[in-house]
Amino acid sequence: MRMSKIVRTATDILYPFIIIFGFYIILHGHLTPGGGFQGGAVVATGTALVLVAYSWKELPGLVSKNLLWFQESGGLLLFIGAGLAAMIIGFPFFYNWLAGSGSIFGTPVAFGPNPGDLNTGGFLPIMNIAVGVEVWGGLVMVLLYLLSALEREERA
């Protein structure tokens, strides 16, 4: 199930950069183009490169099924929990109560072009991280199930 040595060597060089670029897109989702879904898809693509180049059984640390399920449901729960936290304080559902409040992610932003600050955006960075983790877990999970069913088919 392993691919050729050329593919494996190229994968070894490329995949850390792809995954780190995906994390960059997720974390800077409120400043630069991209966001949770795009960054999660890029990270999942980097993981899929490793999964297709190697056999998935050689990589127990990168693609553990329990960890992926935890990512998938934990991301969705974090997303809904961030929306419900506004209701607990007394605002409507999904109200951005952190923006401009001065606490974490709460630096006020002036109107017009500006260089941008990572510590802005209210709960939008939290939402981006939640959706990114969820998309990463979900897409890798689909590939992992397809590959494991394929190996079962080939052995039978």
């Binding site: 966001g35 795009q38 898809a41 890029v42 899929a48």
Partner: peptide, 16 residues
């Protein structure tokens, strides 16, 4: 935005 998600999902994951 659309370009990033198209490159990741369309060119990467769908081909895989």
């Amino acid at each position: 935005d659309v370009a990033i998600s198209q490159a990741a999902v369309g060119a990467g994951l769908t081909t895989a």
